[in-house]
Design a binder for these strands. Structure first.
Length: 348
DNA sequence: CATCCGTGGAA
DNA sequence: TTTCCAAGGAT
């Protein structure tokens, strides 16, 4: 018995009983009317899975509907411009996903004539598709057998099998993927995969799980050992630093000067006030805002220059005068959009 | 293996 | 107010 399996539950159901229990529960209590479940369209599944990466269902739903209205097919998405794609994505965050989804559509058009392959191995060659999304598309779009591990599966498995390692660790990740490979069914994988996610999202929740309604509680390690509140093991906390930011406000009656950010920074390829590393000389404070990212806090000051001419000396990036009307057609980061909404009443 | 990449909702 | 964390992937 190796080290990893020593801590594992000895009362776990065998795969066939486990996955049949999940499938039966899913058909009665799972989610079956989410927007991307209504039509079994692989493109719909593709879009939803990109949007759902690290993003909750409730947040995604309105974006998904608007997206399909704007890009109804894979081909329309593939032929769209990057700016158009980012504008539809604005506010959803993790903007690399949008560019990856765009690249994925172009890749699928060129490589498979617009068809989406049903094999995880091929799907992982697509930009933005990793191990989870490859399994998810295989299961949800094609109802084919494949393993998939997301945050829900990790939590359910850590509790059910009694996995003590921090779930983000490499050791836990390998173990959970191995279990996932061993437990998925050959038939009905769509319902099984959906059932695992539904269990994690509605029953086996991070806090105050609803064990009394869980179909797996009789054979769940954490439930039996009263370890539900201790599993999965919490990773050590790290404090999020606060970083200063300095932005430049230049506007006139016609519009405001913005710049399109580069592709390798936060808010990649989105439009924003020009950003500088130091507060400019001879500038008046126009306003300020705070914003929390996943890994740091931004304390931003917005400066208005006394002499707009000095801008050329300060900035390396190109500026464009965006008319007040045009603002709604470009991709803006949420706090920049918010700041504009607040101050646009008094432009200048 | 660690870090980066957004945002919003819940407690 | 702070903390947590969500259908992760790329580097």
């Amino acid at each position: 018995m190796n080290k990893a399996s020593k801590s594992l539950s000895t009362t776990a159901l065998p795969p066939s009983e486990f996955n049949q229990t999940v499938i039966r529960w899913q058909s009665e209590h799972g989610r079956n009317e989410l927007p991307w479940q209504l039509e079994q369209d692989p493109y719909h599944v593709l879009v939803s899975e990109f949007m759902l990466q690290q993003t909750q269902v409730a947040t995604v739903i309105p974006y998904f509907s608007r997206w399909l209205h704007h890009f109804p097919t894979l081909a329309t998405l593939a032929s769209a411009s990057e700016d158009e794609v980012l504008t539809q994505w604005q506010g959803l965050g993790f903007y690399r996903r949008a560019r990856n989804l765009h690249k994925a559509a172009q890749y699928l058009q060129e490589t498979y004539q617009g068809q989406i392959p049903a094999q995880p191995q091929l799907l992982q060659e697509v930009p933005g598709i990793g191990p989870y999304t490859a399994g998810a598309i295989t299961a949800f779009a094609f109802n084919q057998p494949a393993a998939l591990v997301d945050g829900n599966v990790k939590r359910v498995f850590c509790r059910y099998f009694g996995i003590e390692q921090v779930p983000t660790s490499t050791a836990a990740d390998k173990l959970i993927w191995q279990l996932a490979e061993n437990y998925y069914p050959e038939q009905d994988n769509r319902s099984y995969a959906q059932g695992l996610l539904d269990l994690g999202a509605t029953i086996c929740t991070p806090r105050k799980p609803n064990c009394i309604n869980c179909p797996l509680r009789a054979s769940c390690y954490a439930y039996q050992q009263q370890r539900v509140d201790n599993l999965p093991t919490k990773p050590p906390r790290k404090t999020t630093p606060t970083r200063p930011g300095h932005f430049i406000w230049i506007s006139n009656a016609e519009g405001i000067f913005l710049t399109q950010r580069s592709g390798d920074v936060i808010w990649p390829r989105l439009w924003s006030f020009p950003e500088v590393t130091e507060p400019p000389l001879q500038a008046a404070l126009h306003g300020h805002f705070k914003h929390t990212f996943s890994h740091y806090r931004l304390a931003a000051q917005v400066w208005q220059l006394a002499h707009p001419n000095q801008l050329a000396e300060t900035l390396s990036t190109g500026l464009e005068l965006i008319s007040w009307q045009q603002l709604k057609n470009i991709a803006l980061p949420t706090p920049i959009k918010r700041y504009l909404d607040k101050h646009q009443q008094n432009p200048g």
